[in-house]
Amino acid sequence: MHRKIKGAVSYTLTTLLLAFVGLLIIVPMIWIVLCAFRPQTEIIRYPPSYFPQTLTLENFINIGQKIKIWTYIRNSVIYCLGTTIPSVFLNALAGYAFARIDFKGKHFLFILVLATMMIPFQVIMVPLFLEVYKLGMYDTYAGLIIPNLAAAISVFMIRASFAGLPKELEEAGRLDGLSEFGIFARIMLPLIKPTIVTVIVLGINGAWNDLMWPLLVTTDTSMRTLTNGLAMFINGSNQHGPSFAGAVISIVPMFILYVFGQKYFVEGTATSGLKG
């Protein structure tokens, strides 16, 4: 009996603690959404009121007039899809070769790939920028996308999944007269779909939230991504309302991605140690 009470008390205390941490996450998020729908006058009123007295869309209209929000969103989508879809294909090809085929120099090349994983992006940002500039890719989608196509971490994750598949699969494909590429594309790739989805989901999220690279290689306002354009906007102005609307617009797509792809986010993080 005594034990049962103790258990109930500790369960309650644990739940309270966990709920407190949860509130710490949720309250600022709800607050920003509530603020996004308030008129500017109400936002800067003191003392602050908890619930909006008037609901308005003026902040969303305002942000569209202050910055080229639709252009930014379009650029973000191009950056996200451009860096993930071709990228996952190339990285899967390499991951497949490293996992399933024996070839001369494989070990050396794989070490080379791993070594690039150790190079912090911030250390190479200056020369990488100069290179992209010299190649005439400054302020272009190519400059945003191409340097990010090959990702060692994706090769690494995909290789690990391919390595776990049974050997007989390729043999069967060869007997059917499939080319090496056919075996990869038609037999092997569909078998590691969860890993591919994980890489794509993490890639889209990473590109959407990326601030540094778009900041460096774009200068024209019509080339900015949403994350980058918003950061520039809040650094240059004191207009709270529109910036909340911008934040909400930037969070919602990732939130939807998270709701549907939570499993992939969590698995990808547990294996790759996503940077934050």
Binding site: L90, N91, L93, A94, Y96, A97, F98, I101, D102, F103, K104, K106, L109, L112, V113, A115, T116, I119, I124, P127, L128, E131, I146, P147, N148, L149, A150, A152, V155, S179, E180, F181, F184
Partner: peptide, 23 residues
């Protein structure tokens, strides 16, 4: 297969050389 493998890894290796190791 042991030759095709080079075609498979070539794009990634090339991109990493140009945009990671060279910088």
């Amino acid at each position: 297969p042991s030759h095709a493998a080079y075609l498979f890894v070539a794009p990634v290796i090339l991109l990493l050389l140009v945009f990671r190791l060279l910088p």
